[in-house]
Design a protein around this nucleic acid. Structure first.
Lengths: 162, 162
DNA sequence: GTAGATACGTCAATATGGCTGACATAAATT
DNA sequence: AATTTATGTCAGCCATATTGACGTATCTAC
């Protein structure tokens, strides 16, 4: 086999970078009695207010049973609220409370600090190259609503969800 | 908390990129009856032959009990072998067998394909920017042996790795 | 208006992969 | 000889994921 056209360097850098990236949030979450699953849920709800449960399942790629347990805790403890959809009242649209927003901001702040440090010394072009690389790493065959928003907007992305 | 200089775009791109990156390997691993933990172990053993158990614990940042279960399976099924250290015979130096090498190559091939697609269209400078960014994302306060090798040898690879 | 599809919730059982604490053994170090 | 180190192992706990089945409210179509 014609070995080693392998991207060993990038493969391992991605492993270590992601390990430390999520590690930032882990310590804070522990103090709240939460895990990574809670972070992911409250993060995307805060970022895309009015997200449906089904959307969240698409984004996180987990089953509704797994989501249910975590979501229930976040609802019970007041980090997220549900509202019935106006058009379709079966839907439970999800919104972060002030408490939820604060938690997300705290965690994103830690991760932003790390990204800022990593971006320090990179030109604007280099920063765009990083974005382009990361976008290129993402599957495009089944773009759900949220992913679509991320992939299409280069750097103008805010809370304009339906 | 109110100041939104958050790097929302990079935070979410990293989430989706890593999700799909590890997803490549997951399907193959399933056919082998393995999980992500097995992949990580056999990967680093193949990449750094003669790795000690203690080194592996540093790299993966898990406990020896967690590692033990996974490592035992890989040993029993012939993906990895142990040899006593020549200088210190307490040590169990780990090596990938041909079977282990083949599995690692298969999984790295999938991930390399994805990286190649993502790198396609990026200049050499941009590719280096990506490496620099990923290195910058990694904690440096407690560099173990393997991580040290990656962080330093990575510079040399910038030249011979277009 | 009834039939069926859809959105969501929930119950029960199971697997993986982390964790802690305690203890054992062999070999190196002092 | 005593201690430290490298590793293995037992027993149990926790978080997070899985599948399958079933219930309920609500929307859509005929």
């Amino acid at each position: 086999m014609g070995t080693d056209a392998q991207r060993w360097d990038i493969i391992e850098l991605l492993f270590f970078a992601y390990r430390d990236f999520v590690g930032d949030a882990d310590h804070v979450l522990e103090a709240f009695g939460f895990g990574r699953a809670h972070h992911r849920v409250v993060h995307f709800v805060q970022r895309y207010p009015g997200l449906k449960v089904a959307d969240l399942l698409d984004v996180l790629r987990i089953t509704k049973q797994s989501l249910g347990r975590v979501l229930k805790q976040l609802l019970d403890e007041g980090y997220i609220v549900q509202k019935a959809g106006a058009a379709d009242r079966r839907q439970r649209l999800l919104f972060a409370t002030a408490k939820g927003e604060a938690l997300v901001a705290k965690l994103a702040g830690l991760q932003t600090d790390r990204i800022d440090r990593a971006m320090d010394g990179l030109s604007l072009e280099s920063a765009d190259a990083v974005r382009q690389f990361l976008r290129g790493m993402i599957d495009r065959d089944d773009p759900d609503k949220v992913l679509d928003a991320i992939m299409t907007s280069d750097r103008a992305m805010q809370k304009d969800r339906p």
